[in-house]
Simulated scan of single mutants.
Amino acid sequence: MGVYLDYNASTPIDERVLDKMIDIYRNHFGNADSRTHQFGSSAKNIVENARKQLGSLLNIPSELIYFTSGSTESNNMAILGLESYGHETGKHHIITTAIEHKSILKPCEHLEECGFEVEYVRPHEDGRIHVEDVLNRVRPDTLLVSVMHVNNETGTIQPVYEIGEALAGKEVYFHIDASQSCGKLVEELRVQKYDLLSISAHKMYGPQGVGALVIKNKNGKKSALKAIMYGGGQEREMRPGTLPVALIGGIGEAASFLQDEYQNNRKKYEANRKMILEVLENSGIKYQINGDLTLGIDNTLNISFTDFSSEALMLTLQERALAGISNGSACTSQSYAPSYVLQAMGLDNQRIACAVRLSWGREAIQRELISQITKIVKAWQV
């Protein structure tokens, strides 16, 4: 199958997380909302402990955390959950960016159909949104600003800290999609100001199918966010449905060990990136890095190999069982459409067609693998 280099799509599950989940499935199978017996109490204890573990990683009170099925659901809750409040207050203006995940863009499109005005801020060619391009659009009727922390395609870190500082105290909700940064940029998230924050476990060595939405009080008042689904009273009536105890235990376990290991992991991410860039520089091939390296997270590179289509390279690596890479978000990879993120950055169509994304974890990447990839590209370019 080759070496896995698509961590931004989904990370492998950590063995410690898997062991924790297997124990829960075998020995703590009760419904966490069953209050009439010990089986339910045991399950509830696991849920609340996971809430504390995630709260500790983020340095926030655990009661601010609401478990979901992942960042897609969390993002939908954060945006659609403010619709009623927007109508009640006459705040029908939303600001987001043109490079957000589809789970942000699609709910925003839905609200446009419901009478909201949405402005989509474009990044500059370096892949980064400029703070003033966001703040200059804020109006008295602005309901929400939603900006991702790290772009999933380019790895570019967005200026959410500066935006959060500027919006603090204003009657504007600020939402951050932290799917690619939670568990990695730990210190940054701990000091970040926001009202809503989305997290997904499978981007941080946890299981697929679980995530969280952090909901903070707004200027001393209870958040105006409302549920977008209805059923039981789970998660304080914000998100109905029987809680997946084993999955929640898994995200808690991942948060716990990442709190201890994130600094060492960052060194490993950085070592991999340094090696890849060295091999590329010494290879003699023609390539371009998409996005400013000084603004990027250490586990991601978006590269255009001149005159070598991304589809051809991915198929070649797959056929030779060398590596698994991608050319964009896993949620849109089946469409084979040009990357809307790279288009928003103003890159030309040829450069976009040649772009691939490499994303990795804490495991060391062998220099020889990257050398083999460059040899494939060089043979095509000659």
Results as ranks from 00 to 15, higher is better:
N327L: 09
A224P: 06
K106P: 03
A168V: 00
G86R: 15
R236V: 01
E15Q: 06
P12K: 11
L18Q: 15
H202P: 02
L18A: 15
H87S: 08
L143P: 10
R26N: 12
G346D: 08
V377D: 09
G40F: 10
H101P: 05
L80A: 15
G206S: 07
Y340D: 13
S103T: 15
Q263R: 11
H37K: 07
Q350P: 00
Y269G: 14
E83G: 10
V382S: 13
S34W: 01
L369E: 07
E132H: 07
A254K: 05
P338L: 10
C331A: 09
I251G: 12
A212C: 05
V134L: 11
T242F: 03
L197H: 00
N75C: 06
G209T: 12
G206I: 02
G211D: 12
K52T: 04
K268H: 13
Y269R: 14
A201L: 07
I365L: 03
I60M: 06
K274Y: 01
G211S: 14
T316V: 04
L313K: 03
H37I: 01
S304T: 07
E15G: 08
S359V: 11
P123V: 04
S198E: 02
P123M: 14
L358Y: 07
M345A: 09
S310G: 11
E88S: 14
N59V: 03
E63Y: 02
R266V: 11
G40I: 01
I65C: 00
I46D: 00
R139I: 10
R190F: 07
A312I: 01
A321W: 00
E119C: 12
R122T: 13
F39H: 14
S335G: 00
H124S: 15
T36R: 06
C182L: 14
A312K: 02
